[in-house]
């Protein structure tokens, strides 16, 4: 006869899915609001942006697909808020063909409206061009040569904010939000080649890798996944979707740890049972 742990081991995966679904839904209905601590990596990122001279020009890079919007978009939003609050000029661009030009447009437009900023004088969306290595290298000589127009097709020569901007020399900081390896090329080509300081906000899946770049001083700081975005929201004192999501994260993480523990108890109990038989 099949023992309890054997049955547990062979449980229909859909029960697991149901529990995960419930763990995500319940905190929506009953918020717990646990305090979120700020990591040294997020703090140093914030400090570096805070130390930028007012009215400097910053590149806010939307290198993410719509698939990871829940993690990355809060970072882009808090980044734009922090930069606009310091009166920085923002150039947005992307190396991702799927939707990123529109996402850059909608995020910056939304945040710009909050701070009374205008397109063309306070921010510009360069949009997308194919081939990240060529694009990143090419902008080292001339941004206009690589992006002759902005995302909507207006020549850069007709955009007032771009009058004084030729290449990376006029860029004070790169705020890279990424869900893929393009962040590596920003580091190896733009930071190492042209000395532009940069910070990376990336998905949780990528985050462990970028500790090496923080450690080497190649990036000023790191926002890792939804927690990283929540940390930045706390630092700029504007709690948003990432902060709210941390309650749910807590519950699901505990559930998954419980799965690991139960799975292992079942494995060892089952092994002992099989040995006896």
């Amino acid at each position: 006869m099949m023992g309890f742990w054997d049955r547990m081991e062979k449980i229909d995966r859909r029960w697991i899915y149901l529990l995960v679904g419930l763990a995500v839904i319940v905190p929506f209905l009953i918020p717990m609001k646990f305090p979120v601590s700020v990591s040294p990596e997020a703090r140093s990122f914030y400090d570096a942006v805070e130390a930028l001279p007012d009215s400097c020009t910053v590149m806010l890079v939307f290198d993410y697909y719509p698939s990871t919007m829940a993690e990355t978009e809060p970072m882009a939003i808090v980044g734009a808020r922090h930069l606009f609050s310091k009166d920085c000029k923002i150039i947005t661009l992307t190396n991702i063909p799927y939707g990123a030009p529109s996402m850059a447009e909608s995020v910056t437009r939304m945040v710009a409206a909050e701070y009374g900023k205008e397109y063309g004088t306070d921010y510009v969306n360069l949009g997308y061009k194919y081939g990240y290595t060529a694009v990143l290298k090419g902008m080292g000589m001339s941004i206009e040569d690589i992006f002759p127009t902005d995302n909507s097709g207006t020549p850069l020569s007709e955009i007032p904010m771009m009058d004084s901007i030729v290449n990376y020399e006029q860029i004070s900081f790169v705020f890279e939000v990424a869900d893929n390896a393009t962040a590596d090329y920003w580091i190896s080509i733009v930071n190492a080649g042209y000395g532009v300081p940069m910070g990376v906000g990336c998905t949780a899946v990528m985050a462990p890798k970028y500790y090496a770049f923080v450690g080497a001083g190649q990036i000023v700081g790191l926002l890792g996944g939804m927690k990283g975005a929540a940390e930045y929201e706390i630092l700029i004192e504007q709690e948003g979707t990432a902060f709210r999501g941390m309650d749910i994260q807590s519950l699901v993480h505990f559930l998954i740890i419980a799965f690991v523990v139960i799975g292992n108890i079942g494995y060892f109990a089952g092994r002992r049972h099989r040995r006896k038989v």
Binding site: M32, F34, P35, V36, S37, A204, G224, G225, K227, M246, D247, Q249, S250, L251, H253, F254, I256, I257, V260
Partner: peptide, 13 residues
């Protein structure tokens, strides 16, 4: 397990 606990507020607590 440690990292999963560390990255969420309830786990950190």
């Amino acid at each position: 397990t440690l990292v999963m606990l560390w990255r969420v507020p309830m786990g950190e607590a």
